[in-house]
Design a protein around this nucleic acid. Structure first.
Lengths: 123, 123
DNA sequence: CACTAGGGATAGGGTTCC
DNA sequence: TGGAACCCTATCCCTAGT
C-alpha cells in the first residue's frame, strides 16, 4: 500500500478547477486526458476528480446548512421501514456549472432544459 | 441533465421482470410498447430497460454475498471509545434472503462475473 | 436506418481515516 | 465530531454489430 491517503495539493486543485472551467463539470475523463492537466493529475482518476470536485463544492457551498439535519437522521440505529409511495417521481433538478470565481452563497437556479432526443424514445 | 439520476423503483423492476418473463429477454421495445407495462415504464427507454436488466442479472448472479456481507456489518451509532468492551462482535449472519424465484426462460444463460474492473486508470 | 448488445464514463451513496 | 479521500454500485451515454 504505497498511498494510503493521497491528499490533494494546491496545484492539483488548481488544475482541476481550470479543467472544469475549460471543459465543464462532468468531463472528468476529458480533463484527465488533457495534456495540460494530465501532467499534474496523472496520479488521479476520473472518479477522484469527481469526488474532489464534489468535496470542494460542498465545502464552499454548504457551511452550516441543513446538512446536519440529514446527518443526524442518518445516525439512527433504528431504521423504520421504508414505505414505497406510488407517486410520480419527477425530480427535475438542474444544477450545473458553478465554476465561477468565489461566487458562492447565492444559489443560482438555472433551469436549463436541453432535451436531446436520441433515437430511442425518452419521454 | 434534466434528471440527474432516475432511480428504479420496485414497481418498475417488477414490471421489467414480468415483461421479460412474458416476452423474453431482448425484446425491450416490445415490452415497452406493451400496454401492461407501458404505464409503469413510460419514463424508461428501451436502452434503460436493457441496462437495468443487465444490472439485475449481474446483481443476482454471483454478486450479492459480498455486497451484503460488507453492508451487513455496519450501523455503529457509537464509536468504541476507550472502554473495556470486548470487541468480539463477530456477527457473521448469512441471511439468505428469499430472492424472487422468477426463473427467466432465457435460452442462453451467460454467466458473466464482472470483477471489480476499474474503468478508470489508476496509476 | 432501427434495435440490441456491450463497453465506457458519470453520479451518488456509503465507508474509513485523521 | 466532522471533513477529506476512497471504494462500490447504479444509471447514463456512446459505439459497434446485425
Amino acid at each position: 500500500m504505497g498511498a494510503p491517503k493521497q491528499k490533494w495539493t494546491a496545484e492539483e486543485e488548481a488544475a482541476l478547477k481550470a479543467g472544469v472551467r475549460k471543459h465543464g463539470s462532468g468531463k472528468w475523463q476529458t480533463i484527465l486526458r488533457d495534456p495540460e492537466f494530465s501532467n499534474v493529475l496523472c496520479s488521479r482518476s476520473n472518479v477522484d476528480l469527481k469526488d474532489k470536485w464534489r468535496n470542494i463544492n460542498v465545502t464552499l457551498s454548504g457551511l452550516g446548512s441543513r446538512e446536519k439535519a440529514r446527518l443526524a437522521l442518518k445516525r439512527n440505529p433504528q431504521i423504520p421501514k421504508l414505505d414505497d409511495k406510488p407517486s410520480v417521481v419527477n425530480h427535475v433538478r438542474s444544477d450545473e456549472d458553478a465554476v465561477e470565481d468565489e461566487l458562492v452563497g447565492t444559489p443560482s437556479e438555472t433551469v436549463q432544459v436541453a432535451d436531446s432526443k436520441k433515437t430511442y424514445t425518452r419521454s
